[in-house]
C-alpha cells in the first residue's frame, strides 16, 4: 500500500504536469481537489484515464470519482482492491 501511494504521487505529478510540486509535498490524506492540490475537472478526467491505462480499472460512472479521488489514501485503497494490472 505504501508503494502504491508513492507511485501515485509520482504519477499524478507527471500526468497532471504539477511542475512545482514534489511527492513529499503531498500528504496521504490531503484533499486532491479544492483547497488541497487545487486540481480541476479536466484533472479528474485525466485521473480516470490513468486508472484505466495504468491499473486496468474502468470507472464507468465519473460520479464515483468523488470518493475515490478524495486523497492519495482513498485512491491507493481503491486501486489496491480493484486493479487488474
Amino acid at each position: 500500500m505504501e508503494a502504491v501511494k508513492q507511485e501515485l504521487k509520482e504519477k499524478i505529478i507527471s500526468v497532471l504536469n504539477l511542475e512545482d510540486v514534489n511527492p513529499e509535498d503531498i500528504k496521504d490524506t490531503d484533499p486532491l481537489f479544492g483547497a488541497g492540490l487545487g486540481l480541476d475537472s479536466i484533472d479528474a478526467l485525466e485521473l480516470i484515464v490513468m486508472l484505466d491505462k495504468d491499473y486496468g480499472i474502468k470507472l464507468l460512472d465519473p460520479k464515483e470519482g468523488k470518493a475515490i479521488f478524495e486523497s492519495i489514501e482513498t485512491m491507493a485503497k481503491y486501486i489496491s482492491e480493484n486493479r487488474t494490472k
Partner: peptide, 9 residues
C-alpha cells in the same frame, strides 16, 4: 486507445 482529456481541450 487512451484519449487524454487534458490534450483534447
Amino acid at each position: 486507445y487512451y484519449p487524454s482529456p487534458a490534450v483534447f481541450v
